[in-house]
Amino acid sequence: MMTKYDELATKIIDSNYLLTDEEAIEILTSPKEDLLVLLQASYRIRHHYFGNKVKLNMIINTKSGLCAENCGYCAQSIISKAPIEKYAMMKQEEIVEGARRASTVQAGTYCIVASGRGPVNRELEIVINSVKEIKAENPNMTICACLGILKPDQAERLKEAGVDRYNHNLNTSENHHESITTSHTYTDRVGTVEKVKTAGISPCSGVIIGMRETFQDVVQMAKSLRVLDADSIPVNFLNAVDGTPLEGTKEVTPLYALRVLCLFRMINPTKEIRVSGGREVNLRSLQPFSLYAANSIFIGDYLTTEGQEESSDIQMLEDLGFEVDLEPLTKDCVTH
């Protein structure tokens, strides 16, 4: 007997059906008794497009803190009182060495991240030269840069250097954006993603769940990313750091996190859905279930918080019967 979720999965696979807002909210508020059938329906979609492969991504935080933005979730922002390590842009050799380490743990995507509104020329030059050296050593490694809001021509320079993907998260819905930050606009974020698409770089853009948003906000996040046509969608779950304005916020349960991942899979069926920051503290013992909807994870540490041991993640994949996807990002993956 087909469930309503099976019927939705069939429509999504057959005709790229877009859920109505009512159907989407029903998923987010579904009873716990429905969770396994919801995961099964999401897995049908995930398996149709990606089989049992999982992409591994590793972050290097090349510049920590020292940021003038006022993002309420971020330990690196100017308004944060979190006791984090702060340092200026790393040297090229440190960034390149990080890529070598990523390769040893089967991370096919290496994410070069820097705090701040956007890169100044000196910082951009370090990233560009680092990417050139990494690509010379390992042409098949996918390089993702996450450097903030880009100025004119910066996206083109990154593309020329060999950057395959650029991450700039929407983070939340347009309606909720000013509750999270006022130092830049939602339009600023969308504009940067459009800029990298125009330059021929694969766009990566995602969200943070658990920042006091409504169910409707979550639905709009997923649908906005579908319109934006992001190739890769990191779904972060708030890990509320002490000293930030969102300190003490704990809205996400493991079951709700799984419902969110199912929703993002159903609304963006052909895209890389990545379980990202906060998965360890929010999903806890249910982490393996997340990969029935998602097909990508971060391994290792995040920007200012610790992640799970890489060996534990690899063991989790093996226990699930999944395999690491080592295929490089090709031109066919960039559809813009």
Rank of each mutant, 00 (worst) to 15 (best):
Y73D: 02
D242C: 02
G248A: 13
R189T: 01
Y49T: 08
N239A: 08
Q76G: 12
D153Y: 09
N57S: 05
G148C: 06
D332F: 11
V252G: 06
M2W: 09
F298H: 05
E93L: 00
N61L: 00
A145W: 09
V193H: 12
H47G: 00
L147G: 07
R274C: 12
N129C: 01
K135H: 12
S130E: 02
S205W: 13
Y49N: 05
A82L: 04
K331A: 15
I128L: 01
K159P: 08
S42N: 11
R157P: 00
A41I: 08
N121G: 02
D164P: 03
R157Q: 07
F298T: 08
K86R: 14
C262K: 11
H177T: 11
I12Y: 14
L291Q: 10
D164M: 06
I128N: 02
R274S: 07
T181Q: 12
K197H: 02
S173Y: 06
P203D: 15
V163C: 02
D34V: 03
G206M: 07
K63S: 05
I59N: 09
I12E: 03
S15R: 13
L320N: 03
V105A: 00
P328V: 10
R279L: 12
T187H: 04
D6P: 12
A107F: 00
K53H: 14
G248Y: 06
G321R: 11
I180M: 14
E178M: 14
P254F: 10
Y73E: 02
N175T: 15
F289L: 15
V120W: 07
I233T: 00
I209V: 07
S183Q: 01
V54R: 05
S224A: 12
N282S: 15
M266V: 06
N16R: 14
I180N: 02
T109R: 15
T214K: 01
N169M: 10
V218L: 10
I95P: 03
V96L: 08
R100F: 10
G118A: 04
H184T: 01
P83L: 12
E33F: 05
K250C: 10
N16Y: 15
R189G: 03
L261I: 01
D231I: 04
E194C: 07
R189A: 08
P288K: 08
M90T: 07
D301C: 06
